[in-house]
Write a protein that binds this DNA or RNA. Structure first.
Lengths: 355, 355
DNA sequence: CTGTTAGCGCTTTCAG
DNA sequence: CTGAAAGCGCTAACAG
């Protein structure tokens, strides 16, 4: 069942069928309707390869996600959820997600090659090092790219992330309102965007509220549980230990919970902990984590939306965009910071009496 | 940089280049080496679409995974890990994973159409209802398919799962050896393969050890936390409550932990719980879950291996397979049950003194 | 508005 | 062993 067969059955040429099926303006409505009806009836499916071959762009969006079990920060459960959101959002745009596998080779061109091989329409990047050569090469190749929690930029690249500053600020506010004045933070690696922005938000809100943040109160983990444990033990060993701690990732926050327990403290009686992300486990641990929730589906949807914009821009589409405001005048798609929401559970309480 | 350019630069015809690059026997070794060297040097990448168009089979493997947030059993964290395993295993075979999105339409042909559109080499199914029309249609279409935890079979279909019976049996054995004699079970829906097999394994091991299983001790959840909670509360409300319970999924097992707590019981002092899967949260909850671990990477690798076999069979490859034993003589790929391993943590203890 | 025609980049007969 | 030539199924000029 190919386009020729369809043309025969509808009594027109293949060109007309193609036009009708691709919603081109230059077909008479009656012809179009008839063709579309016959196509549907016959269950005709255009061959995606043939179409890509001539159009030089497929309906595939690559997902660059370094899932090597070894790679730091890669296997964040958070990202697995984003993946699902991507799939859902992409479905509405007629695109499909292709997980690009690097199969061993890791020269700087792996992603670029994969993109070309499959004539990708664009790519979504997450959980990778945005400074790594293969990644920068991809960005520089001019392929529309959107980073999730990765500050990639360029003529055909942009990113989406959470409003990390506001999120961290809300965590501080929550603790402050419970009476806490000795508030510490466990953030991520200093080279990662969410780490930096969350730390900034933390500092800003503390300043705003006149809360002093001694430098020992600022610690850096790697978003994995063990680092949250270590940092928290360190904090608790301080001469003036904090009474509340903002942990910039739920995995690390669970580590903080364990650290408190091992230090003989009860959460939230002796120590208050607020996490970040609201991963599944956040609601499962005891005490359930109070945490700054990211809307992962919305994050994915925003990424897809931005990507589609980039693709359209690149194609030179002059059509009136649905939301003209969100494409910058200079023909660029601005980064987006999506709002977060504090989810109050059981890991924060009033300040403990002075010991 | 296309094959023509490459041919020009190597001073041969495109046909020869094609043969060389595809490892065809009918090229002189010297010519081949020279062409391969030049290709590598120039970073030549064959266009996948052009190649698929003529070969009528792409390097894409579809992943049919019903990730609608609504779909039962779909968003199991377990499956997200399998996904990563699939990607890794597939990379070695030169294939890429395509997440097939159904974009609204849900007639019986959605998957079949998607498969045809992209000329998929095969498909991996997980987290879907193997009785659903779109799924059976895909299986019946003759596309090589392998189900993960789904008992799909057919001339070009097979499946992989855990050795659920042995796994459940090991859970029973563990409890029995700790002295438990009143052992209950929370399994999944009766129509799902893992539920059924785990329940069977549970029953067999109980019988083997002379442990009686009253019918009230057998409960069915849906693999989600809440159902584990409900079932466990029910069990604990029995006149003769169990002292140990085998919960056939970690999510449900966490629910069981909460149920125990809410019933005023301490795990493992008053109740022993063993889970199944060893998802990430299993190690994070307190007490950490003793659970039957599945090797998710191995499961994924086995799925890929089976799929590749099916693809080869279908192509009519007569080459000597690497492991001839695992392809059945009748030209079929048998289902596989991978071994599980009991991971002992803190949720099981000796039988409590009679209250 | 519609048909004809020329490829997209590659593999694969079929001759040599 | 190698080359010439015929498409794979579709889209996009270019004429009508």
């Amino acid at each position: 069942m190919d386009i020729r067969e369809l043309a025969r059955r509808s009594g027109v040429s293949v060109a007309t069928v193609s036009r009708a099926l691709n919603d081109r303006p230059d077909v008479s409505p009656r012809t179009r309707d008839r063709i579309v009806a016959i196509a549907r009836e016959l269950g005709y499916q255009p061959n995606e390869q043939a179409r890509t071959l001539v159009r030089r762009r497929s309906d595939l969006v690559g997902l660059v996600w370094d899932t090597g079990y070894a790679a730091t920060g890669a296997r964040h459960p958070f990202l697995a959820d984003v993946l699902i959101g991507l799939k859902i959002a992409l479905a509405d745009t007629g695109h499909h997600l292709l997980l690009v596998s690097t199969s061993g080779a890791d020269d700087a061109q792996v992603y670029v090659r994969a993109a070309r091989r499959h004539s990708l329409a664009g790519a979504v990047l997450m959980g990778v090092d945005d400074q790594a050569a293969p990644v920068t090469a991809l960005i520089d190749s001019g392929l529309p790219c959107v980073g999730i929690d990765l500050p990639v930029t360029g003529p055909a690249a942009t990113f989406v992330t959470s409003d990390n500053r506001a999120g961290a600020a809300s965590a501080v506010a929550h603790l402050h309102e419970l009476g806490h004045r000795r508030i510490a933070v466990v953030t991520g690696p200093p080279e990662m965007l969410p780490s930096v922005e969350r730390l900034t938000g933390f500092r800003e809100e503390c300043r705003r509220r006149g809360v002093d943040v001694p430098s020992e109160y600022v610690t850096h983990g790697d978003f994995f549980l063990a680092s949250g444990y270590t940092c928290t033990r360190q904090l608790l060993a301080l001469p003036q230990p904090p009474t509340g701690v903002v942990v910039c990732g739920d995995e690390m926050a669970v580590g903080a919970l364990h650290a408190a327990a091992d230090a003989g403290l009860t959460v939230p009686r002796d120590l208050s902990v607020v996490g970040y992300d609201d991963v599944e486990a956040a609601a499962l641990v005891r005490p359930a984590l109070t945490t700054v929730a990211q809307d992962r589906l919305a994050l994915a949807a925003a990424a897809v939306d931005s990507l589609i914009r980039l693709v359209a821009l690149r194609r030179g589409d002059a059509e009136t965009p649905a939301e003209p405001a969100s494409t910058d005048p200079d023909g660029t798609v601005p980064p987006r910071h999506l709002p977060n929401r504090l989810v109050v559970r059981d890991s924060c309480g009033p300040v403990p009496a002075e010991r």
